[in-house]
Amino acid sequence: MATGTTYGARDHARAQQGRRTAAMPLVPAPEGLVWAENVAGGNYTHKAVARGTELRLADPTGTACAHVLLYVTGAPWERLNVADTVKVQWNAYLGAGRLLLSDQGRVLASLVADTSGRHDTLCGTSTAARNTARYGDGSPHGGTPAGRELFKLAAAKHGLAPRDLPPSLSFFQGVRVEPDGALEFTGSAGPGTAVTLRAEMPLTVLLANVPHPLDPNPAYVCGPLEVRARAGQPTGPGDPLWDDTPEGRRAFQNTAEHLTARGL
């Protein structure tokens, strides 16, 4: 179909209706879901979700690496604080039952299910300088985009600037700390693993699916990331997660008090 004229370009564009690719948003989302998307390696996505939303991230090939940033929708100065997430819970390793905290001592999201166990709270995502040195390019529209460059694009669509990008955490590619303090890249747990996050506040979610900065593979290899979200209920008193640890209980109480004062 010729696209050399406005009419031709219009007809070509309309002819694409209904076509599907392996990596794209599913709009409208399938019944029962509020967000469904397949994110290619080297790409990003973003969405504002309601409190209680259950967000499932899956790694079908064992090569995805989901770098994550979280912000309170409408109050983005309250955002994921990876240092406090680690410090308050006395644990640098994510898994089911862990909480993702803001610097206000409140719970942004809880990790309610995890079949991977290979995650990272220590290294953040890749940068343009590192990717340029390693692959020859780190620009967001090149063949080997850096995670921070993709986060900049995602953030801009929610009125956020580069200064609003704190350190991120990542799922599906693990890092462990050796006794001497060295970082060991443990890689993937294999294909078919997933994690489920429960939004404990209204959240803006930014995701960049790029290779982990410690991945020793000289090639830029990153498989697709499956994103599926459904409406749900936030954690409340009586839920085992609420009372799992004294630190967690206090964080949930801080969150409930804050939301009650705002009429949420």
Rank of each mutant, 00 (worst) to 15 (best):
D180S: 05
R19M: 11
R56A: 10
M1E: 09
C222I: 09
V34H: 07
Y220V: 02
V107D: 11
E184P: 00
W77S: 13
A64M: 06
V112N: 15
G147D: 01
P179V: 02
V195K: 12
T204C: 10
S126M: 00
A58T: 02
A189S: 11
Y7T: 15
E257C: 11
A194K: 00
G159L: 01
A154T: 05
P28A: 06
V107H: 13
T121V: 10
P246K: 12
A129P: 02
R56V: 02
R163S: 13
A208M: 10
N217A: 15
L69H: 02
A109G: 08
D84K: 13
A13W: 10
L33K: 11
A36R: 09
W242A: 07
G62D: 01
W77F: 11
H158P: 04
V39T: 03
V175K: 03
Q173A: 14
P224K: 01
T193N: 14
N38M: 13
L160H: 04
Q89F: 04
F171P: 04
L206Y: 09
P28K: 07
D244S: 15
G117S: 06
Q89L: 03
V195C: 15
Y7I: 15
H67T: 12
L214H: 12
K152D: 00
D244F: 02
A66D: 10
W35C: 02
D84G: 03
W90K: 14
A23I: 02
G232W: 04
C123R: 07
V227R: 09
P240K: 06
L55S: 05
S139A: 10
S126K: 01
L150C: 02
T132R: 05
R20S: 14
Y44C: 13
M24D: 15
E31C: 04
V177W: 00
